[in-house]
Computed example of a mutant assay.
Amino acid sequence: MLIILICAGVFLSYMGYFEKPEDRVQEFSEAYNRQDIKKMISMIHHPEVDQIKNTFNFTGAISSALLGVDVVDLLINFMPLSEELLGYTGSRMYIDVQPSESDLLRTEAIVYAKVKTEYEGVSEEEHLVFYLKKKDRLWYITDIK
């Protein structure tokens, strides 16, 4: 019996069953605050964002061929540095994750959150719903409403 429980635990852990969609939403907020565009884009699985990824890849390949430098990578990697170099802080996002819902197999989830954004002393608060889907044992944000 103990062996069956251990095997079940290992299997569920391997399948990412214990990964929480709420944690992925929190990671997205942290990446937003660090202006880590690459990380933010990697957390989203949506047709429009996939087009942006393809455009970045194409533009990067062309600039590498013509200039020897991937301009897209250069610009994306500059964003987090702009805060230190130029003092640009951008906006900030604070997420208070509420209880979430997921299907029995934990392949799709809905995360409710109270989101506060601040920019230059002005703050805005709204309730958002994050829709997530699990692919290859990782949660991806598919929509935000």
Rank of each mutant, 00 (worst) to 15 (best):
F28K: 02
D36M: 03
K39Q: 11
F11G: 10
T117L: 00
E19R: 13
I62Y: 03
K134R: 14
F56M: 13
D70V: 01
A31V: 01
P21K: 05
I95T: 06
A61M: 14
I52W: 06
D50E: 13
S29W: 00
Y14I: 06
A113F: 01
N57T: 07
I3N: 13
D73N: 15
G68L: 02
I3P: 11
S29K: 04
Y32M: 04
D23C: 02
V115M: 09
T59G: 14
L5T: 14
S63C: 08
I37T: 12
G68M: 02
F56L: 00
P47D: 11
E30N: 03
I37P: 01
K53A: 08
M43Q: 11
V49S: 09
G60L: 09
N57M: 07
F11L: 13
E84Q: 09
S82H: 02
I141W: 00
Y112N: 14
V10C: 07
S13T: 11
V129Q: 06
E125H: 00
M1I: 07
I3E: 15
I37L: 14
S91L: 02
S64K: 14
L86H: 01
I37R: 10
D70S: 10
A65M: 13
I76V: 13
M79W: 01
K114G: 01
I144D: 10
L67M: 06
E124K: 14
Y119P: 05
S13P: 02
T117P: 01
P21H: 04
S64I: 00
L138Q: 15
E118P: 01
H45Y: 14
E120D: 09
E124Q: 10
S100I: 02
P47C: 11
K145M: 07
I110P: 04
I110C: 08
S63R: 09
L105M: 12
H127S: 08
S42K: 06
T55L: 15
V69D: 06
D50K: 08
T59A: 15
L2M: 14
L74D: 10
V10P: 00
E101Y: 12
A109D: 02
G87M: 09
M43V: 06
Q35A: 07
G121A: 04
V49D: 08
E101G: 12
M79E: 07
